[in-house]
Each structure stands twice: as structure tokens, then as C-alpha cells.
Amino acid sequence: MHPAPSVIVFTVASGAGYGLLATLALLAAFGAILPSLWLGLVGFGLALGLITAGLLSSTLHLGHPERAWRAFSQWRSSWLSREGVAAVATYLPAGLLALLFTFFDPGRGTLAVLGLLTAAGAIATVFCTAMIYRSLKPIHAWCNHWTVPGYLALAAATGLALAFAVLGAFGDAAAGPVGIAAIVALAAAWWVKRSYWAFLEVVPGASTPETATGLGRIGKVRLLDPPHTGENFVTKEMGFRIARKHAGRLRVIAVIGGIVLPAAFVVIALATAQPLHSLAGAIAAVLALAGALVERWLFFAEAKHTAMLYYGATRA
């Protein structure tokens, strides 16, 4: 599948933003962070900024962005529509929580209710994003039980790494537990991605050129002549191919750069005092985000669509 930059930026930025939002909302809900102007501005500002930038980025690949509002209508059947509804619905408690946390101190009860609602909305939105891909039967690399854990784990890992960087910079007492949670989430992301890649190696998609043409009754099927000598929308959109050796190297880069090194920098940050504490935390967050971008690019580039079985692909 063609790795469209707008969709990669959207899923990574909004995933990290919702991860950070859920972390801060839960901390606020349980009183682990206390309302404060600067933590509110920077923390919730960064979370809502990433989410908003991601959602706006997602409209860039639309043929008619001015009609994007129509996408809220089909939530009964479309995961894309559900994602839009969940994203907008999450803005309500999240915006209120950010406002009250930053400028007022509404008390524990209000923070708890808004915090839990915000965290639930954030998790639901990332779940809907993952389900868009999970539900596409023609794409075996997406339509499997690793897609949803992959999106949730990476959102948690990048979000917690960002939360650790922000809380570390403020010298907040919650930074320690959040740092340990970030390491756990990074380890979980590593395990999920490793299992996902192993799954792709072992379990092939159900469709073949034989089932796509129905000519398997005669024997093995291969393309003799394509319908046209140039490209068309289908070959450009679904026919992206990545060299196997590059995929292998990029997987290593994603794991080392996006999981192992960020975890190491979180450990360094936990073991050191300021200013090294803040610096290492910031490096961990940036690396985790960069690694997630590589992972998400691979998620698209490595996925094969059954339509390419009509254009000479032997597996989908």
C-alpha cells in the first residue's frame, strides 16, 4: 500500500497525542498531578496540539476536504466515521479538563470524572483508528489480530514517553512512575511488533492469483499481459513495493531507534538529576516518535492488497 505521508503523520501524531492525553487525564483523575498553569499549558497543549495537527493532516489526502464534515454521518457501519465521531466527542471532556486543570482548580471529583471520560475517549479514538485498518479484508497485513494491539501499544509508548519528558521537565513527582510505565509500554510495543512481523512471515493471506481469477482449476496462474503498459490508480495506490532488505533494515531501525534507545534514555533520565534528567527525557520522546514514524511507514509499505494479484503479485 502506498505510504501516504499525511496518513502516517496523522496516525503517529494523533496516537502520541491521545497517549499523552490519556496519561495526563488519568494522572489528574487520580490526583497524581495537581492543577497547575504551566503543566496544563504545556502538557494538555502538547497533547491537544498533536491530536489537532494529526486530524488536520488526515484531511490533506482528501479529494474534497471541505466536505470532511460529512464523514461523521455513517458511524453505524464505518470505522472511519466512528473515528471522526470519537475524536470530536473526546474534545469535549478533554477541552474542559485542560481548561479547568490549567486555569482553575475544580476539585478532585470533577477532575476524576473528566479525567476518566477523557482517557476513555482517547483510547476509543485510537481503537477506532486501528479498526479502520483491521477491518479491511483485502489487506492481510492489516486484517489480523495484531493491528489493534499495535496501534494501542505504540500510542501508549509514544504518549507515555512524551508524558515522561513533560513531567520530567517540570520536575514533577509523577515523572518516576510514568517513566517506568513508559519502559513497560515500549517493551509491550516491541513484543507486539515482533509478534506481528513473525505472524506475517508464517501466516500467508488466503487469496492467490488462482482464487482471484478462479483459474486455479486449470493450474498455477501467472500474469501474461497486464491491461495497460503504464500505471493506473490501483497500481499506484495498492502496488507500492518495498525491497525486502530495506524492510528488514527499517524494522531494525524502528526497534532500536524507536524502542530500545528511548527506553535506555528513560533509564538514564530516571538515574540522573537536572538538567540531564530533562534532556534525556526529551531525547527519549523524540526518538520514540521518530521510531513510530518508521514503524507506521512500514505498516503501509509492507502491506499487500489483493487487487495486485491481478497485476502479477503472487501473494496478498
Binding site: 479529494g63 474534497h64 466536505r67 470532511a68 483485502p138 490501483v234 495506490e237 495498492m238 487487487a307
Partner: peptide, 27 residues
């Protein structure tokens, strides 16, 4: 008149039957 050109339908079609019109921005 209501297609937003998100192309998700073309991903959901196993047969590659849908083609996006880049000029008009609709499927």
C-alpha cells in the same frame, strides 16, 4: 456530490474495481 475522496472504499474492494479521479477528487 457527497464523496470526500478519502479512497477508503478502494482499499476495501479486493477486486481493484474502483478508480479515483484525481482531477475531480472523487471515487
Amino acid at each position: 456530490d457527497t464523496c470526500i475522496g478519502c479512497k477508503l472504499c478502494s482499499w476495501a474492494c479486493p477486486y481493484g474495481a474502483r478508480e479515483y479521479d484525481e482531477d475531480e477528487g472523487v471515487m
